[in-house]
């Protein structure tokens, strides 16, 4: 079972893709266009945390503390929370100054191309300020330990387990939000039928604002996952964009649960590609999975859109 050690890798990438794809699928179905800035919102989330941690150590002169076996302490968790809000605010600002004015002109392709341009600006803005070199939240080396009794090949570091656990918590929270709250039902209503949603009293602009906030916040978490388990680079989110779109389409555009499932599947497919066909083919394998699924189910696994 030579592929077993790659299970944790796949789940980690899958968690990142799942949280990113949820935001992408929400913005696509509620705002009505493929948002290429989503990858860069992920990057900005990672850099917000980096900046906040740098500011914290500069201000206090102290370290970042430790929480049990994790490589970080509560300042990191606080920075993550603030970064979620700030990244949501970046999404809101983009909507306000760019997408909403353009939306009045109608054509979807205009929005897609504008988002491509904004994506470049966001990415190179970071590269200009922070430089292209990778950065790390912590220099600490963590040891991976077996996590499943009887399967010594499945090893993970405490930070990696934190990522998997937080993903599970966020997905459950998102499920509760979408099914138990007025905002969640309104978001599902707008994604299915925006005109009818207005007729039952849903303010479409309010729902759009919450969609940017929520999508941005989840993107920030995805970015911080990459920063925590790999490294922080100005291109980290952009490099995720293709697998993110693959995950969104695989799960069925507009389906939040599909996005989570699609993210995990693409993440696992990429990770298992390494021992099975070689690391250089991992991106291709993810897209092979996508193609095969779409040939069988053109709407994606959980999609309902025609």
């Amino acid at each position: 079972m030579s592929w077993l050690p790659f299970l944790v890798d796949g789940l980690l990438l899958g968690s990142t893709l799942a949280l990113g794809a949820v935001g992408l699928t929400l913005t696509y179905s509620i705002l009505g266009f493929a948002n290429f800035t989503h990858g860069d919102l992920i990057t900005w989330g990672a850099y917000f945390v980096l900046s906040l941690l740098l500011a914290w150590t500069a201000a206090t002169g102290g370290g970042l503390g430790r929480l049990g076996p994790l490589s970080f302490g509560w300042p990191f968790l606080a920075a993550l929370a603030v970064a979620m809000i700030l990244t949501g605010a970046v999404g809101l600002a983009l909507d306000r100054v760019l997408f909403r004015p353009l939306q009045r002109h109608g054509a979807q392709i205009v929005l897609v191309i504008a988002s491509f341009g904004a994506s470049l600006a966001l990415r190179y803005g970071l590269a200009f300020v922070y430089g292209p070199e990778p950065a790390y939240y912590t220099r600490e080396i963590q040891l991976a330990a077996p996590v499943v009794p009887g399967l010594p090949a499945v090893r993970a570091t405490p930070d990696q387990l934190f990522v998997l656990g937080l993903t599970a918590v966020l997905v459950v929270g998102l499920h509760l939000l979408l099914t138990r709250t007025t905002l969640g039902r309104a978001m599902r209503a707008v994604s299915e039928n925006p005109a009818l949603a207005r007729m039952v009293g849903v303010d479409p602009l309010a729902v759009a604002r919450w969609t940017w906030l929520l999508g941005g916040a989840l993107a920030a978490v995805a970015g911080v996952f990459v920063g925590l388990t790999v490294q922080v680079r100005p291109w980290l989110g952009f490099d995720l964009l293709l697998p993110l779109f693959a995950a969104t389409i695989l799960g069925g555009v507009g389906s939040v649960y599909g996005a989570v499932l699609g993210g995990l599947l693409i993440g696992l497919a990429e990770a298992f590609a390494v021992p099975l066909v070689g690391a250089e083919y991992r991106a291709a394998v993810a897209f092979m999975v996508l193609l095969v699924v779409l040939l069988i189910r053109p709407r994606g696994i959980l999609g309902t859109h025609e």
């Binding site: 099914t179 039902r185 599902r188 209503a189 299915e192 009818l196 949603a197 309902t304």
Partner: peptide, 14 residues
């Protein structure tokens, strides 16, 4: 009606 919402959710939304 919102096809993907349940009957109850349709009413709750309103």
């Amino acid at each position: 009606v919102f096809a993907r919402l349940t009957v109850r959710e349709n009413l709750e939304l309103a």
